[in-house]
């Protein structure tokens, strides 16, 4: 996989990507490429499991927005699963928590 993308699992129309580590400007380009590749696959919903992401900077958040737009164009959805406190405050300060679907736990993930 990559530094950030640890595991990709497919369950019906939902693809779940488990992420880990610190998504900063050094990691963002490769992270972006990895997600773009995954988005090109056959899926209705992309779930990014953020529970093991300790830190995300603006280029990481920018990557999430780019992927969100990319999916939206094809009527696919993005779900952010279990962001930690650190990641959550980055989303809050940029008001992105209002646009993204954030699920606290797997049971909150909407059906694809």
């Amino acid at each position: 996989m990559s530094e950030i993308i640890k595991e990709v699992t497919q369950d019906g129309a939902t693809t779940t990507v488990r992420l880990s580590g610190e998504i900063d400007m050094h990691q963002a380009p490769e992270f972006h490429k990895g997600l773009v590749k995954i988005c090109a696959g056959d899926l209705k919903q992309l779930v990014l499991d953020l529970s093991e992401v300790r830190y995300i900077d603006s280029s990481g958040v920018g990557t999430l927005v780019e992927v969100f737009r990319r999916l939206k164009k094809k009527n696919q959805t993005l779900v952010l699963l279990s962001p930690g406190e650190r990641v959550r405050s980055v989303l809050e300060i940029t008001r992105l928590d209002k646009f993204f679907t954030v699920a606290e736990s797997e049971s909150e993930i909407p059906a694809a």
Binding site: M25, H26, A28, H32, S59, G62, T63, V65, E66
Partner: peptide
């Protein structure tokens, strides 16, 4: 200083 795509910038 960063290497991300122009769209992300």
């Amino acid at each position: 200083h960063s290497y991300v795509d122009a769209s992300i910038i």
